Computed example of a mutant assay.
Amino acid sequence: MENYQDECHLKEIHQLAEEFESCRKLLLALGDENRQHLILEMMRMGQCEGARVGAITEKTNLSRPAVSHHIRILKEAGLLKVRKEGTKNYYYFDADTEAMDRLLQMLAHAKEIMEHRPERK
């Protein structure tokens, strides 16, 4: 019985590892302190139609190239989108719902595994 439980537990852990792997880009984007600050400042700006890099730069202690770099990472992770108006780019939050769903599923699965650990009972 114990071998079966160990085998099932290993399968769960391997599945969780795959789920974690599928969330890495999003976790990396959210895990950086500068990007967290940038996200918070963008939210505080309250610009639902989007904000330009210059306006975002003014609200952070980051240089314009650094803000552009972090925006690129957030875009690639599916957290930001860009709206173009002529030659101007406006960045706004519109998270990739599939990526967010994968992240939520992975976190729920990790919580479920932890709740069923023998030392928790």
Rank of each mutant, 00 (worst) to 15 (best):
A17P: 03
A66T: 13
N34V: 02
E58D: 13
V53K: 03
E85W: 04
G50T: 01
H14Y: 12
E12L: 15
K88D: 13
L40R: 14
S68A: 15
T87D: 14
A77N: 00
T60Q: 09
E49S: 13
I39G: 00
T60K: 03
G78E: 01
F20H: 07
T87N: 15
P65H: 05
R72P: 08
L28I: 07
G54N: 14
L38C: 03
A77G: 05
C8G: 07
E21H: 14
A51N: 09
H37I: 14
H9G: 08
H70D: 14
Q36M: 06
L30C: 01
M45L: 15
R35D: 00
Q36V: 02
Q15D: 12
R44G: 04
L30N: 02
R52M: 14
A66L: 11
I56N: 00
A51L: 10
R24Y: 03
I73W: 02
H69C: 11
N89A: 11
N89G: 10
R52Y: 09
Q36Y: 00
G86T: 06
I39C: 07
L27Y: 01
E18S: 14
F93S: 03
H37C: 14
I13W: 08
E18P: 08
L79P: 00
R72C: 11
K75Y: 07
S63M: 06
V53A: 06
R72M: 13
K84D: 10
I39H: 01
R72N: 13
V67D: 05
Y92C: 04
M42Q: 04
Q36T: 02
R24P: 04
L16D: 04
G54F: 04
G46H: 05
L16C: 09
K88I: 09
T60I: 05
C23W: 01
Q36K: 05
A55G: 12
K84C: 11
L74I: 07
D32R: 00
R44V: 07
A29W: 00
A77S: 04
C48G: 15
Y92A: 04
E85P: 10
L10V: 10
H14Q: 15
L40E: 15
H14L: 15
L80T: 01
N61E: 15
E58H: 11
L30F: 04
I71G: 09
C8M: 14
L79F: 02
R83F: 06
I39V: 07
P65Y: 01
E85A: 12
Y90D: 10
E21G: 12
